[in-house]
Amino acid sequence: MNLAVKLEALHYRARANRWMRYFTTFTRLALAAGFLPAGYVKIIGERFTDLHNNQPMGHYLEALHHTGYYYTFIGYAQVLAAMLLLIPRTVVLGTLLYLPIILNICTLSFAVRFEGSLLTAPLMVIACVYLLCWHYERIKYIFPFNNPPFIQPAQNNRFPKLFLAVVIATFLAVGFTVTHLYKLMPRNTQVDCETQCDDSEIPEACKVFCESIHKNGQDLDKSLDDYERALKQKK
């Protein structure tokens, strides 16, 4: 059995399961709920968060807020993607619009170590990929496979225990990864940042990092350099 046939069989077996359809509907609604308020805030011209400008993500969002109609454009794109996800006939189009936006947010979250979306953004990326897999029959023609004939499987109401285990394992794996990926996080305020210093190898060096971010307004890389220098001096 070639790869195309295996993918086709797996895809239609999943789509025939009632519980999988419920999960897919929940995924669509959850993704739409994630973008509707965020997009609306941008459309009406309000700043997305109240993070201060010295915080890396706050610095980026402040600059983004001052980009004029580009800021509004992002808001409309987010709302449009969310609305398309709510309509069954346009789910694929909505997902294709949603995915690059949330992938950009995910990359940004890791680049500036922003805790606010460090967990949710990668999960939303995975959710978009899942929706594209769910609608494989609509996008399979872009793959260099021979397309086998469609075979409608019988309806299946069996609860997908293995799939549920994979979902839970994915959530736990992403959660564990993002919480153990970095030794230092800028956090939202200097006080919050310094709460991690008690568990740091050298608390004084950690506090130098927090001051460099929140008091001196240095970017993340410069603050990490300050931390490394302080770490060497304290040893």
Rank of each mutant, 00 (worst) to 15 (best):
L51Q: 09
N53Y: 13
N53Q: 14
N53G: 10
N54L: 04
N54K: 05
N54R: 05
Q55M: 14
M57I: 05
M57Y: 10
G58C: 09
H59Q: 09
H59M: 10
H59R: 11
Y60C: 03
Y60V: 15
Y60G: 01
L61E: 08
L61G: 01
E62V: 07
E62T: 13
E62L: 12
A63F: 10
A63H: 04
A63W: 14
A63C: 01
H65R: 01
H65C: 02
H66W: 13
H66N: 15
G68L: 08
G68Q: 07
Y70N: 06
Y70W: 14
Y70D: 09
T72D: 11
T72R: 08
T72F: 11
I74P: 00
Y76H: 11
Y76V: 15
Q78R: 03
V79S: 05
A81R: 00
A81E: 07
A81G: 03
A81H: 03
A81P: 01
A82S: 11
A82V: 09
M83E: 08
M83F: 14
M83A: 15
M83D: 08
M83Y: 05
I87S: 05
I87C: 08
T90C: 11
T90M: 13
T90S: 15
V91H: 06
V92C: 05
G94A: 07
T95Q: 01
L96W: 10
L96P: 03
L97C: 12
L97G: 03
L97K: 01
L97D: 07
Y98C: 14
Y98D: 13
L99H: 03
P100D: 10
P100H: 04
I102C: 04
I102G: 04
N104Q: 12
N104M: 13
C106D: 15
T107S: 14
T107R: 04
L108I: 12
F110D: 10
F110R: 03
A111P: 00
A111F: 12
A111G: 02
V112Y: 11
V112H: 08
F114Q: 12
F114C: 09
S117P: 00
L118R: 01
L118K: 02
L118S: 07
P122F: 14
P122E: 14
M124C: 12
I126K: 03
I126L: 15
A127Y: 06
A127K: 00
V129K: 00
L131G: 11
L131T: 06
C133P: 00
W134R: 05
W134M: 13
H135T: 04
Y136E: 10
E137C: 09
E137Y: 11
